[in-house]
Amino acid sequence: MSDTNVAAETKQTARELMIPKFSFRKHGGLVALLIILAFNIAVTPNFLQMQTLFVNISQVATIAIVAVGMSLVIATGGIDLSVGAVMAVAGALAPIIFQSSLGVEYPVAGLVLSVLIPVLVAALCGLFNGTLVCVLKVQPIIATLILFISGRGIAMVMTNGQLQTFNMPSFSLLGTGKLLGFPFQGWLALGIAAVVAWIVGKTLFGRYLLAIGGNEKSAHLAGAPVRKVKIAAYVICGSLSGIAGLIVVAINSASDAARIGNLMELDAIAAAVVGGAVLSGGRAPIFGAVLGAMIIQLVKYTLLANGVADEVALIAKSMIIVAAVYIQQSRKE
């Protein structure tokens, strides 16, 4: 009897010894975030200041919002390269609306419409992507490449390729306002993540989404409306990109179609993957994507704050993706 106890105990210790390795796989993102934070506290000047926190929150919010949408698309086994371009479309559209004669005459209606219409257009972009993928069976990477290229072009045409500056404090609140002392878009990102996480975890749509990503044929035979669910994932991703585009414009009080959301697709995919999404589908860790976005933002910030050149920062970002994919591979086994 005592012998078995000893054996059990040894087993217990052995298991405890294995915990760090095991949990690194599962909570690698969290560990990485803590390491980067610790590094910054030690090295980066003035890191522990409210100002730094606010800057990072306002920057990370857009990545997080888009990454949440991207997670849904990736969960279906797809990918959306057009998110950055869709941000540009939405971002270019908003000032045009509230600066139009109608917007000037009825400022409240103009403000509301300048939020609603761009998000609606972004949703339509998602619908376009989803239709190409699900109805015309175009591969997601190609289907979304179309808007990736043409979307930014459309945004440039709408603004004549010029920087549009504006003075519209009520709209700029979206990017500069504060709620309970923290940047508004930080709350917005958290709220969106919470709602989407609830959708994924608790609703019919979420269950179908994961089932379709996990095994589309099985899901179809079990009655899942495969096409609708997949298209919806692209539409949600498009809409969230639209919201992110508005935030970027609001932060700058200017819209520059050439720059809004530039390279956002890479950040969003990286955030989702770092957060635990699997490119073959079937998983949608929403808060993981938020965590991934935080890591990517912090790495960017760290490099910038320590005077590392932009080009080098890009290389660093790609290293994160490589590391994330590596961890993902080992997770599969």
């Binding site: 269950r207 994961l210 089932a211 996990g214 095994n215 044929k217 099985s218 899901a219 035979l221 079990a222 009655g223 899942a224 079937g282 998983r283």
Partner: peptide, 15 residues
């Protein structure tokens, strides 16, 4: 065409 391998017994059963 049957199981969704990564999903739980519960989720597979009620699909």
């Amino acid at each position: 065409e049957g199981i969704i391998p990564d999903m739980s017994v519960r989720e597979n059963l009620t699909l």
